[in-house]
Simulated scan of single mutants.
Amino acid sequence: MNDEQKTLWDYGAHAPGPPLSGHVLVGMDGSDEAVRALDHAAEEARIRRTPLEILHGWPWARHGVPTAQPGKMDVQCLIDKARSVLEFAAGRVHERVAGLDVVTTLSPEPAASELVRRGEGAALTVVGNRGLGRAAGLLAGSVSLRVAAHCGSPLLVVRGESEQRKPAEGTVLVGVADDADADAGAARFAFEEAHQLGAQVRVLRMCSVPELSGSLGAHPAGRLESEPKNLIRIQESEDAVPPTVVAVMREKFPEVGVRIDTVWRDAAHALVDASRAADTVVITAHHHSGRRSGRQLGPVEHALLHHAHCPVALVPVAWQP
């Protein structure tokens, strides 16, 4: 917190309390995208029977007072604007979900960093984004992308292109790669989400086709048909996935129906296409260190955040519920 931000508390703001635990956290800046995220977050808190925390972080006046900066205009205006955003959000939640425990948090810290910090102990953090279209250039620097690159707990990104929530499909889609152990957290989250929603889980297993020489790569089906040994290797690998990733979850959630499909194509395109018939798509968040911009997401995660047809849940590799 810098000196300018500290002076904000002199105008009647209150420092945020300690981070909560086991709750649903949502970022709220007053935008249409944030309102859609708020609605999803309220529903998640309802079905999980947990409190909902609504966070409003700096810069507060991006919507409605675009030139507002500490020290350059009436700081009280910023405080009032921030409070009005939180009051609107809390009122909307109470109207839509009666009896839900709602906590509002006003922070002088940047929204992305505060969402990451306060989301460490959350069961789920929810943010909105603008998707593509006219604001495509804004996504790369958006709060949602910065949070996604650093989150230590599950993050739900509500895609901003649909003005209204599409009809429920009754399916939670989860992507599983060849390295199945790395996707255990994502699989667990998908089953828990399906259990809460009364939905089924569709496991989309992304496979690399073995080269004829034994290495990994893509080959036309015609050449594979003439190589029985390769097909046997592929089938053995495919049969190994349910015990390592799905079997434990099936025992824990026996009421959840499961469908397992294997695809021999680009993971990003396959998941985006399959997301058309899903309520949520769940994938492991693989964080990579970029030379210039620090931690970054992988190409599959980027593709889903830009093009998925339903909300995207990113589950860190090391996440433990």
Rank of each mutant, 00 (worst) to 15 (best):
H195P: 09
S144C: 08
P16E: 01
Y11I: 01
R159N: 14
P321V: 06
G30H: 00
S213L: 06
L216P: 03
S142G: 00
A148N: 02
H23E: 03
V245P: 06
Y11D: 07
P19E: 08
G133H: 03
H309Q: 13
E161Y: 10
A122T: 08
R134S: 15
A247E: 13
G121V: 02
V248E: 11
P19C: 12
L297M: 07
S162W: 09
L173D: 03
G257F: 00
R83C: 03
P19Q: 11
V241W: 05
E114I: 01
H309K: 13
P110G: 03
A247F: 09
A218I: 11
A37W: 02
G71D: 02
C310M: 11
G257K: 06
G64W: 00
P167N: 04
A42H: 00
D239S: 14
A274G: 08
A41F: 01
R250P: 01
V143K: 00
M1Y: 01
F253T: 05
L25T: 09
D181K: 12
K166M: 12
R49N: 15
M249H: 14
V272Q: 08
W58C: 00
G160Q: 05
H309V: 11
A221Y: 03
W264R: 13
G298T: 07
P299N: 09
G30R: 01
R295F: 05
G152V: 07
G217A: 12
L52Y: 02
A148H: 01
K252S: 11
P70Y: 12
V315G: 06
L204S: 13
A140C: 12
L132C: 11
L55P: 00
P51K: 08
H269W: 10
D29I: 02
V300R: 07
Q69V: 08
L38Y: 05
G257I: 01
L156D: 02
L304S: 06
H302K: 09
A148M: 05
V103E: 14
L155N: 11
V85R: 12
T50S: 15
A90N: 06
E87D: 15
H307L: 14
V116M: 04
G57K: 00
F88M: 14
E44M: 13
N230S: 14
A267Q: 07
T104G: 04
V201R: 05
E87K: 10
A82T: 02
V158T: 08
Q76C: 06
G175V: 05
E169F: 10
T284N: 09
A270M: 09
E87Y: 03
I47N: 08
A186R: 10
E227N: 14
E4T: 02
T50I: 15
E169G: 12
I260P: 09
A68Q: 02
V65L: 15
Q69S: 13
L106P: 01
L145I: 13
R146W: 03
L155W: 04
R48Y: 05
D183K: 05
A112P: 01
P210S: 06
V143A: 03
G185Q: 06
L38R: 07
E120C: 08
G128Y: 00
V176F: 08
L25P: 06
D181P: 08
E255N: 03
R36V: 08
S107A: 10
